[in-house]
Design a protein around this nucleic acid. Structure first.
Lengths: 138, 138
DNA sequence: AATATAATTTATAATGATTCTAAAGTAGTG
DNA sequence: CACTACTTTAGAATCATTATAAATTATATT
C-alpha cells in the first residue's frame, strides 16, 4: 500500500471520497514500513512540513476519526493528557518509555500468553491489552 | 482507616493540613470496603450529595492531585475521554466492561504471570498493566 | 488566647483540546 | 454540463482542566 492509486482504491472501497487532504494523510500515515504512533498535533505538524499547505485542523480530526471508524487506525489510551493513534491495528501490546514518552509496539509473541483466571457471568473477553512501562536503567 | 482521626493523622503525616474539604473527600474515597473508581465529575457529584455543601471544583482537582502525588490514588488511562482514579494503589489489572463502561479490579493473581520477552538496552520494566475489555455474551 | 505565617480554598478567568456550524468548495453521477 | 451529496474550512462553541489572586483557615509562636 504505497502509491496514490492504492490509496484512492482504499478510500473508495470504504465509501470515503479520495480528496487531496485524505490522500496526503494516507501517504503520511500508511506509506511507511514501521508502525506510526502519533497525536493529532504530531500529525498536523508533519502534514504542514511535508505538504507546505495548510490542512485545516477540523479536517485532520474528521479524517482521523473516519479512519479509526473504518479500522485503519487504532486509538491507544496510555496517558490522561495525550491521545495516541496507531497505524498498527492488529492485536498487540506496547512499551511506554517513561523517560522519553515514546510508545513502542510489542508483537503478540513478545508477551507470553495471558491467562485471565477470573470471569464474569454473561460477559466474554473482547480484547487483552498490555502496557509495559519502561524506564532508564539508571 | 475509617474514622476522622485516622484521616487527620493520614493527612498530617503526609504534610497536608486536615481541612474540612479534605476530610470529606477522604471519607468519601477511603471509608469503604471496595475499591472505588471515579472521575472528577463523579466525585464532585457525590460530594454534593453527601455533604450538601459546595466544595469548589478547583479544590477537588487540587486534592485529588495531591492524593495522587502522595500515593493514595492511582490514575488509570483506559479511555481517551475519561480520566479515572482508583483508590486501589496496589499493582493490579482491570476489566473494562464495554457495555456499561464500568471498571472492575483484577487481582494480580487473576491474571497469570506475564512474561515480557522483549527488552530494550538501557531500559528496565517499571510496571505491567493489563486491560481486559469484556462485553455482553450476546 | 491572641497574633503571625503559611497553607488552603474559592470564584473566576485563562487555556487547550476537541467538536460544532454553516458557508464555500469539490467529487461523482447522469 | 448540471446536480447532488460529500467534504473542507475558518471560526465559534464547548468541555475539562489549570492558573490567578483575594479571602479564609490551620498551625506555630508568643
Amino acid at each position: 500500500m504505497n502509491n496514490n492509486s492504492d490509496f484512492i482504491e482504499k478510500l473508495r472501497s470504504s465509501g470515503l471520497r479520495p480528496t487531496k487532504q485524505r490522500l496526503e494523510i494516507c501517504k503520511l500515515l500508511f506509506d511507511r514500513k514501521k508502525t506510526f504512533h502519533f497525536t493529532i498535533s504530531d500529525l498536523s505538524k508533519n502534514l504542514k512540513k511535508v505538504t507546505n499547505k495548510d490542512i485545516s485542523l477540523a479536517t485532520i480530526y474528521n479524517t482521523v476519526h473516519s479512519f479509526k471508524k473504518k479500522g485503519y487506525l487504532k486509538e491507544i489510551s496510555i496517558n490522561a493528557d495525550k491521545s495516541y493513534f496507531d497505524t498498527n491495528t492488529s492485536n498487540h501490546h506496547h512499551f511506554l518509555d517513561i523517560n522519553t514518552n515514546e510508545l513502542i509496539d510489542l508483537k503478540e509473541d513478545d508477551v507470553g500468553n495471558i491467562n485471565v483466571k477470573k470471569s464474569l457471568p454473561g460477559k466474554k473477553i473482547k480484547s487483552i491489552e498490555v502496557l509495559v512501562k519502561i524506564e532508564n536503567n539508571n
